[in-house]
Design a protein around this nucleic acid. Sequence first.
DNA 1: ATGCCTTGTCGCACAAGA
Length: 260
Amino acid sequence: MRLATWNINGIKARLHNVLAWLEKDSPDFACLQEIKSEDDSLPRLEIEALGYHIETHGQKGFNGVALLSKSPIEDVTRGLPGDDSDTQARYIEGVVSTETGAVRLGGLYLPNGNPVDTEKYPYKLAWMARLKAHAAERLKLEEPFVLAGDYNVIPTETDVHDPEAWRDDALFKPETRAAYWGLMSLGFTDAIAATAPEPHAYTFWDFQGGAWPKNHGIRIDHLLLSPEAANRLSTAGISMELRSWEKPSDHVPVWVDLDV
DNA sequence: ATGCCTTGTCGCACAAGA
């Protein structure tokens, strides 16, 4: 089965691209970020018409995450556990049944964290600590679990066109990368690094300054696999061609095929 | 140098993104 993640940057503005992607790439279970819509103002029917179930954790204007699946989504969790005062819609998790058992997908939109001298950066680090705690709980289930989304983290120097320019950025600061590798140390496998480890294979290019034609990108969208998911890893990839479509998102989809 | 884009909101510009 194919799992995918994509930060679409507004579902109303991106609906045509999302539908074309679902028809062309046909992911079985996908997570979307930055839908920027409330749950009752979504173009739900158009997505369901393509045979997808949709579960959302929406928010007006900003953030917002969704799960899409060809089979029914069960056991849905909305919001990242660990802080009831956090009102930002950045996490949704669900389970689908397959012939070989359950597959769990957590879809996340990790806070950007810039500017780093504001409250936004400690919020990011606190969110990452909550994510690690939640992931540790889920790993105890010992089931195929994919923790995917827009991490807003550049893991290594080969994941950015100009490391020096990003040295002090919230996406690349040492504290950010340390938190990311702390999460990884629980036992996750980065699907892209494991199967398509080409340096400078990016997932985001800024709208400004001609970043896409110059390939001034960063790799910040990741699919992290639990050991039980990594055991079933077939292949993974980045759908870079979508950055050339009409009215593109600034992110492109990332996908992984599991033998389930 | 937080802007040279883009989105959404209820606006006649703004915040936020990365």
